[in-house]
Each structure stands twice: as C-alpha cells, then as structure tokens.
Amino acid sequence: MNMMHEIVKEWLEQEKIDLFIGYKVVDGHPLPCFFTRENIDDVDNLVESKARYPLEKIAAKVYSTHPEMKIGILARDCNQRALNVLYVWNQLDPEKIETVGINCCPSPAREHADCSYLEREPSGPLKTLIGIENNLKPEQAEVYSQEERFKRWSYEFEKCIKCYGCRNICPVCFCKECSLEHSDLIKKGELPVEIPIFHLVRAVHMAGRCIDCGLCEDACPANIPLRLLYREVNQITARLFDYRAGTDSGQSPFSILGENVTLEPMSL
C-alpha cells in the first residue's frame, strides 16, 4: 500500500468523499474505475499509470444525477485545469470535489510529460507536404501563406469521419444540445463534413474553455491536429481578453449570463 492508497482509504472511511475516480489495471490496460467505501480493499488496486481519461467529465456526469455526492478524483495537471473550467461553468461544485494531484506535465524542470501524450509517431511525408503536422506550435503553422494555410487545414479537415470523438472525450464539452449537431449550422448526412464550418464551430466554442489536454487529438481517428488549432484559439483569447482557461478563475469572457444570449465578439 502506498501513500495514495492510504489517503484515498482514509477519505472514504472518514466520509470526506463517497466515491473516488482513478485508474485500475484490467488485463494489462489501465482503465477508469470507481472506488467506494463498500469495496474499500479494491483501493489497493488504484494506480497512477500513464493513462489519461477525462475523469472530471465522469465526475460531472455523476454530479448531474447525484449532486449530494462527494467525489475524489485522481488529477493530473490537465484534469485539474479541466476541473477549474467546470467550476467556472457551474458543471461541478468545488465543495464536492477532492483531488489527489499528480504533477506530470512538462515544465522547465521536466522535459517530458509522464503520461500517454507526447509518445506519438512522427508525421509521414505527405502530411508534412500538404497537411499540418500535429506537433507544430501555432507560430510554426503561421509561416504558410493564407492560401496555403487554407489548403493545409482543409486537407486535415477532409479526413474527418464525423465520429464526434473529439467532442465526446473533451472534458469541457458538456452542452446538452451541441451546435455541431445543429442542422442550421452544419450540413447533415454527408462525408466529408462541411469544411471548415464543423471544425470552426468547435474551435470557436473552445475559446475560454479548452485546457489543452490533447485528449481530442488522441481520440481523433483521422489524426487531425486539433490540439494545435485550439491552442491558437487559446492564444487569441489570451491576447484579446487576457484570459487563460483553466488557470484564471474568473468567468470566461465568452459567457454573458441573462437574456442576451448571442455573443458578439468584442472588437478591439
């Protein structure tokens, strides 16, 4: 039993939490798992692992049906940022959440993330030639001319099979009715998806929300550089509104409550 196990057991026993969401190895694969007071010995199987799942999304789901439940979460840095966004958007109550933190993201002191990300294969030559490489920084994607940018991004979007995996895995995509399924906005029933509207809509929605966890890109079967796209969205948001999702605790500049439901972009 390690320290993490002790803490989780203690929390469960002392009723500080009713449920802990972490990982357990099943047939060689770390999978998200609920640990409960009733089955406390199972906590010995709790592992950190390299797996990344939007555990906070699962917590938000539990919260929506059991608002009284106190939930513990194994939180990597990205989970923590996502939790902050979910608090800001009232999807979770910070009073009900306890976290066991794992510091894992790259930092000046640490070159590599200790998680499943950053272990991706290098891009193939065709992608380098006519697409957008996944591991570029936003600035590097801006060296191309306007026309070339459009061609390169369109190539990437062309590959989309409209599986909605990016949205489904995303910890901060929590809308009851998703605009991506709105037939007035996006043409239905066809592949490829409407280029670039489908991806543009999602990108816009990630402003002030996306916490750069990269799960969407991991989930994307077409290997579209989604994280890069939303990173740019974040940079614009930071530049124009001085707001950083997941770290700034204030309301997002994109949420205006009340009757005024349509949001006009502020022009500077």
């Binding site: 809308c175 906005l185 929605h205 997002s252 994109f254 949001l263």
Partner: peptide, 13 residues
C-alpha cells in the same frame, strides 16, 4: 436551453 450562453457562440459564414 443551453447550459451556458457560450454554446451559441457560433458563426454562420
């Protein structure tokens, strides 16, 4: 009906 207003932050081009 949306959870938050931002969901309708959507452009038609």
């Amino acid at each position: 009906k949306f959870v938050q207003v931002v969901t309708e932050f959507t452009a038609k081009i």
